[in-house]
Nucleic acid binder design. Structure first.
Length: 476
DNA sequence: ATGTCC
């Protein structure tokens, strides 16, 4: 995008003044190079979101923002129910509660490398990955509803996780207010055999080395040490979340019309928070959040089992589990007044600063771990929340590198085998059921995640704590 | 993202 289309507030803040139907400004956090490389559609989509009823503050886009369905991916927007605020399925995203968890192994990189090939094979064999992948777990109707109400808490109670994980998961592992009765039977049917599966696209399980520490005090509290290994899992609510999104997108087109909301783009379909469709979506979406939390907890459990086979007695400690596709009710200070807002984060990570009451005691001094997934074969980062992000982005930060090339363009440019071989030469083991998928996820198809996290840090959204590099990647 | 178009 042409930087001249913005009012530059500071080197990392770019503002679109309200024009036409926009009720508030749109604000993008990025450096000039990221703005120049950013999808043209982000300007339009962030402006469109700013026109929706009840929006508070501004429509925000993170440094990794790119074109999405209606709302940009990397978008943050908060709405006030008492001022006609809306909720939008497209503002959450199709993969409800897609997110990242990182687990600490305490294993030195040298020890891991000795068993890397066997470990990769075992992970690939036991972690179902790819489109339509199914696990050995099958849920009947009662179990399904228990899972949708209980999230990771349910998984722990069923023996697929550990009690102490829960305080390291957003919402302590269980999203309150979930309403399984508002989730369609079709959505539940799709999920019946998909618990504990990775899915496809940009989802992965990665064994990573801690390469560099930027903030020694935060790293110490997070338990991150250079030369040790961590495991990061990126996935979401699989078929169930996707079906909830599809069901309600359709319904919200009608709901918006009924409420007299003029949509600049049909993909912004939404419903007033205080409406039947709005309330039902929120209840169903929260059930979708629990599905994703349970899914990542089960995947963590499978991972522990495999690691213990190679490293007897090893305990994988959960650093944190955080979503980047949600709509959550949160208290935020706006113009000196505390307001209850429905905060949509679509491809944006919650990033609570130090001292936030929702953080576990052990993390209060440094702030929330903000887990930034790189693309396959590139670095990932662990950031920590900053107090400044509260007023800048309703306590949100970026979520990953963001695509530079479309899936189609990437598949035209590279072959899957070629990508696997090139990464193997750099000592990175890739296992995937889909060579087409590997080509689409080639490192060159993504922006530089390093530039994204520096921009997030300089903009005051979150600060860098550690850099991770991949050793083994199980790719969906 | 997604039983990648019921």
């Amino acid at each position: 995008m042409d930087p001249a289309r913005f009012t530059q507030v500071d080197p990392f803040t770019w503002r679109i003044e309200p024009t036409g139907a926009m009720r508030v400004p749109a604000i993008i956090y990025a450096d000039e190079a990221l703005i120049q490389g950013m999808d043209e559609k982000v300007h339009l989509q962030a402006s469109n979101v700013a026109s929706l009823p009840g929006i508070v503050g501004a429509s925000y886009a993170m440094p990794d923002a790119h074109w999405g369905y209606g709302f940009p991916i990397g978008g943050v927007a908060a709405f006030d129910a008492d001022h006609g605020g809306i909720v939008s399925a497209g503002g959450v995203g199709f993969d409800i509660s897609c997110g990242v968890r990182t687990m600490l192994t305490g294993i030195p990189v040298e020890d891991l490398k000795r068993v890397a090939h066997g470990l990769a094979q075992a992970l690939y064999r036991d972690i179902p990955a790819g489109v339509g992948s199914e696990s050995t777990i099958s849920l009947d109707d009662i179990e399904m509803d228990d899972m949708l109400r209980g999230g990771a808490r349910w998984a722990v109670d069923r023996g697929w996780g550990e009690e102490r994980d829960l305080e390291r998961i957003e919402e302590n592992g269980r999203m309150a207010g979930a309403r399984p009765e508002f989730v369609s039977n079709r959505a539940k049917e799709r999920q019946r055999r998909e618990m504990g599966t990775l899915g496809s696209g940009n989802h992965y399980l990665e064994v990573q080395a801690i390469d560099e520490i930027y903030d020694p005090e935060a790293a110490r509290i997070f338990g991150l040490q250079v030369g040790e290994v961590v495991v990061t899992i990126h996935c979401g609510s699989r078929g169930l979340g996707h079906q909830i999104g599809s069901d309600f997108l359709l319904e919200m087109v009608g709901a918006a019309k009924e409420a007299g909301i003029i949509l600049p783009d049909k993909e912004l379909a939404c419903a007033p928070i205080n409406s039947d469709a709005g309330r039902r979506y929120i209840g169903a979406m929260r059930a979708g959040i629990n599905c994703a939390l349970a899914n990542r907890e089960i995947l963590g459990h499978f991972t522990r089992r495999i690691f213990r086979h190679f490293f007897p007695g090893n305990e994988l400690m959960l650093l944190f589990d955080v979503s980047h596709n949600t709509c959550k009710v949160e208290e935020h200070e706006v113009d000196g007044r505390l307001r209850s807002l429905h905060v949509h984060r679509k491809g944006a990570t919650r990033a609570l600063g130090p001292g936030h009451p929702d953080l576990p005691d052990a993390l209060k001094a440094v702030g929330q771990p903000v887990l930034i997934g790189g693309s396959m074969g590139t670095n990932s980062y662990v950031l920590a929340g900053l107090a400044t992000s509260e007023e800048k982005s309703f306590s949100s930060a970026c979520h990953g590198a963001g695509r530079a090339l479309s899936r189609h363009a990437a598949a035209k440019q590279w072959g899957g085998r070629q990508v696997v071989e090139e990464l193997a030469r750099r000592g990175i083991i890739i296992c995937s059921p889909s060579m087409r998928g590997v080509a689409e996820e080639a490192p060159g198809a993504y922006k530089d995640v390093g530039a994204v996290v520096v921009a997030a840090e300089k903009a005051g959204l979150a600060r860098r704590v550690a850099k991770l590099s991949p050793l083994v990647c199980i790719k969906g």
